[in-house]
Design a protein around this nucleic acid. Structure first.
Lengths: 237, 237
DNA sequence: GTATTGCCTTTGGTATGACCAAACTTAGAT
DNA sequence: ATCTAAGTTTGGTCATACCAAAGGCAATAC
């Protein structure tokens, strides 16, 4: 297939060399890249290929570029992956089926997460969940603040497996799945509903009842979807 | 943050316009892009920015480029997302912890998948699983063929939720998670072990026993990891 | 009539050189 | 020491040129 992997170009060897220098630390993280005219001397290439290489590295998330500013070296991390996906994911969300698929996958993951939580959550996890839930309760009257604490509550769930991939996935969901509607469809009444849903989830987790936790989570997310679907008059799926 | 999103450049407007023409279908899928010299006339830009735009679109997976060949228009799909991630993911897998995290996430997902399968698999899913298992059995003596059927068996699990996101994730796992060792560490003996593991999973699914299915799957994948870990003398994690 | 061969044209990849405007540096003024 | 203004560096863009490989075409061979 080889999308975006233009093998055989001169720029690629430059990319490879710069890539190596970045991962090896020879080019320090957060440090500015040398000037283009210096790089062309260093690699014996024309500015054309140097700039192409820089563009590619930027796409791969290995350097940050702002127009007219020195590119900044950036060691790749999980957030980088997320960002690389983002550009493409957005195209899949123009169709409703794309949104639905993404949302369903979220339900699937979170179901497994709460199940896991009920079975294996540590004391500190429970503490964090209680704190997050408390934040929910205190923010019921402030929809904007409630949104933040809502996301945070789910975030705690994603952190329970202690695998940095999951918080990254969570970030993906929250940034891709229509923060637009999420924000505009909130009200103290709905916040209260969601607070209670979170409470039910936490209760089930604390009772170490995976089935109940899964069910509470499923109800919570399905209800949220229903609300959005009906509000926007999306018809049945 | 804005990685790979070089706002403010002339190329970006060209990217946007081409992007629009691709998603709208004005530029047909699988059709070659117009020649660069034609695009520069069409957009009133220099070849420099045209080429930069093409490079960006290529990185985003909206066009396929091979050196010296006409770029090919490509409507974004789930595979495109996968590919966009691939370039970056690879960097996270240079450390062992990255591999472990990815593998753990796979175990997590597949546990949920087999659980789901035990609870909700349709007749056709069972049929597919049986067929895949049968393929396993017939390929025990041919390690290369067994690898293929092994991947296929797991693939059936990912297709059960009827959400295209999951097969995509599966492809990610199989392409990123060391197909190198997977291939070289196989033998008829290990194939037999894996066949039996698959059989145990399917049996549990057919008995509609989610707990047993989850356990069988976990044993299967944990054992595979252990085997790799010990073989490569990776020490404890 | 089809397949093969060889020539010409098109087109992508790269190199130069130039220019501009914005960022950066530095020396001078307050 | 701080601020300011001039000078320098440097990224973004354009125009042009050249090369080699891909594509197209036509004469040739079978």
């Amino acid at each position: 297939m080889d999308i975006g992997n233009d093998t055989g170009r001169a720029a690629d060897s430059v990319v490879a060399m710069l890539e190596a220098k970045i991962v090896s630390g020879e080019l320090e993280n957060r440090a500015p890249l040398p000037a283009e005219r210096e790089l062309m001397e260093q690699f014996g290439a024309s500015r054309t290929v140097i700039r192409e290489a820089i563009s590619k590295l930027s796409s791969r998330g290995l350097i940050e570029t702002r127009p007219r500013f020195r590119p900044i070296v950036r060691k790749p991390d999980y957030a980088t992956v997320l960002h690389a996906c983002g550009n493409v994911v957005q195209h899949l969300l123009t169709e409703r089926s794309g949104i639905k698929n993404l949302y369903d996958s979220r339900v699937f993951i979170e179901r497994a997460l709460v199940r896991e939580a009920a079975l294996a959550a540590r004391k500190e996890d429970i503490v964090n969940l209680r704190a997050a839930l408390e934040d929910n309760r205190n923010a019921i009257s402030d929809s904007s603040e409630f949104y933040r604490t809502d996301v945070a509550f789910h975030g705690v769930l994603y952190r329970i497996p202690r695998n940095p991939i999951f918080p990254t996935i969570h970030e993906g969901y929250t940034s891709w799945l229509a923060p637009q509607w999420d924000r505009m469809l909130r009200s103290p009444e709905r916040n209260e509903v969601n607070y209670l849903a979170h409470k039910a989830i936490l209760d089930a987790i604390m009772e170490r009842d995976p089935l109940a936790a899964e069910e509470a989570l499923t109800n919570h997310l399905k209800a949220a979807w229903e609300f959005v679907r009906v509000t926007f008059d999306w018809g049945e799926e």
